[in-house]
Amino acid sequence: MSYLYYPGCCCSMKASGKAYEESLMAVLKKLGVTLEELKDWNCCGATMYMAIDQMQAFGMASRNLALAEQQCPNKTPELMAPCSACYVVMNKTKHFIEDYKEQVGTPIRNALKEAGFTYTGKTKVRHPLDILVNDIGLDKIRQHVKKPLKGLKVASYYGCLLVRPYSEFDDVHYPRSMDNLMEALGASSLEWPLKTRCCGGSMTGTVEDAGLRLSYIILNEAERRGADVVVTACPFCQTNLECFQQRIQRKSKGGISDLPILFFTQLVGYAMGIPERELGFHRLFVPFHFSPKQVVTEGVE
């Protein structure tokens, strides 16, 4: 299996989500997936660019889609975008070009033509979670598990943009794919209602009180339900829930205690026995410790 890899810039790979890239690369290497980086990719535009000029934002995202077609001329290019925002923006662009031909489709196609691209719209945008669960399959992942996470209570937090608004691979209201993945690793997944609630996004940097409040609601609910760890699939969610955790604790006057927030790939890699250093565990603000022995005796009692 081979995919085109779109690293994404705004929040993920070279910046705060570095651990995500490291762990994703290590896990996919172990599972025998080859990746090829999209040459000369540009920013997807994120949610901010769309607020200033939507058409230009579509132009930015569609350049990536066209580049993928150029790089894989003979087959259907499958572009893997690990960041939820990149994933949704590129999917949205694809949908808008098809759905609103006059308003969006024609101008974008013309602009791409002038820049020397041929856009047919065959590029598929995929998320690593989709690839792990649907392409590689849970059975193969189960075979690779060396350290089963028995007794670990995992709260899967999908974040808002992973399944909304275009549910490409999972339910919009109550997604299950990440829970199934965690159960395949031997952990017990937590049923909780805030799986897809917004974490505040860039609000924590701009209107801090509002942003921290949203993150607090998620952390509080996860803790109340007895989660040992929260796993996310978005670099923004991870930054908000983890780096701002101390500030949330101070604001809520000790309402919540330390809760490790991991990328789901980090936990998959951990269960597969990949060394912690390669998975970027040293980049965490709240350290993650797991000792299966202790948990097993607790379970017996």
Partner: peptide, 21 residues
Amino acid sequence: PIPVLARQFFEIVKKFGRNNE
């Protein structure tokens, strides 16, 4: 601050093609 952030992001991405958080 939100429109200011959006504008800064817009200008940096337009100029360099990639963003710096």
